[in-house]
């Protein structure tokens, strides 16, 4: 079972600052982490490997520093890591990113000497929040895709998932190879161990450039990105919650019950 997990390095903050001129993220001075949804994708991949055997490879597209995110992945169960990096890739939107990643998949498959049976992505990155790269990657590769998996198992060449939805989950299956995007799992991703952390430090992370991918650079970076960001802003909170204040506990509870009944929650 060969599993590829696509990860993104994102700023570790809930208060993301946006450059008012360029409308892009301000990254200076903000510590970086592995996108939380990607850590669940990796955990899911590692659990499948542990259950049925195989190898987990991680890939990230980003600047040199993104190697730190890959090291983190290597310390929690990934067996190998590749960084896709180069000036030609800067400023890529989701279309260009997924195109580059689809080329990287093929290059990594050649290097690893075997095709991937399963490609996992987090459902979305917490910085851009588009949730487009995973599905687009599947389209570029011509593979079936299932999204929003909160649980996944692999058996006899078939992947079964529980797809998260508002009122529960859908059970879905598809044949491998396939691309799956992953939401928060019922279990938290594992911590590194001291040994795995030290071993990850020593593992080389090959860098794949545009040349290595033999890619059409006109479809990469700003040139290959039809998306134009007009403005980015924090949505204003239009409705504030209802506060029941200044009442004794029993009266406040009764009022709350009325409100909830009226709203058809109770």
């Amino acid at each position: 079972m060969n599993i590829l997990v696509c990860v993104k390095q994102v700023p570790d903050t809930n208060e993301i600052k946006i450059d008012p001129e360029t409308h892009t993220l301000v990254r200076a001075g903000v510590p970086s982490i592995v996108n939380p949804f990607d850590t669940y994708a990796l955990e899911a991949g590692v659990q499948i490997k542990e259950a049925i055997g195989g190898k987990v490879v991680v890939v990230s597209m980003g600047p040199e520093q993104a190697a730190d995110a890959l090291k983190t992945c290597l310390s929690v169960g990934a067996d190998a890591a590749y960084l896709v990096s180069g000036r030609e890739f800067g400023g890529s939107d989701t279309l260009a990113t997924s195109f580059i990643l689809s080329n990287a998949v093929k290059t990594i498959e050649e290097k690893e000497g075997a095709p991937f049976d399963l490609i996992l992505c987090g459902k979305q990155a917490v910085d851009g929040d588009t949730a487009q790269v995973g599905p687009e990657l599947a389209e570029h590769l011509g593979l079936p895709q299932l999204t929003y998996a909160m649980d996944l198992t692999v058996e006899d060449g078939v992947v079964k998932i529980k797809r998260e939805c508002d009122d529960g989950y859908d059970l879905m299956t598809t044949n491998l190879p396939a691309v799956i995007t992953v939401v928060k799992l019922p279990t938290e991703p594992r911590y590194p161990t001291i040994r795995s952390k030290m071993a990850a430090k020593k593992k080389p992370i090959p860098v794949l450039t545009a040349e290595d991918l033999a890619i059409d650079v006109s479809r990469c970076g700003l040139k290959g990105s039809p998306t134009k960001v007009k403005s980015t802003y924090t949505p204003s909170r239009e409705k504030s919650g209802v506060k029941i204040a200044g009442l004794p506990a029993d009266e406040a509870a009764a009022q709350l019950a009325t409100l909830l009944t009226d709203a058809k929650i109770l």
């Binding site: 161990t193 001291i194 030290m198």
Partner: peptide
């Protein structure tokens, strides 16, 4: 139990004795 899994209960002992080798 979690610390055991992470290797926090044997930090200064050699790996051959189950430690983390730190």
């Amino acid at each position: 139990k979690k610390m055991a899994e992470m290797g926090l209960l044997g930090i200064p002992f050699p790996e051959e004795y189950g430690g983390a080798g730190m």
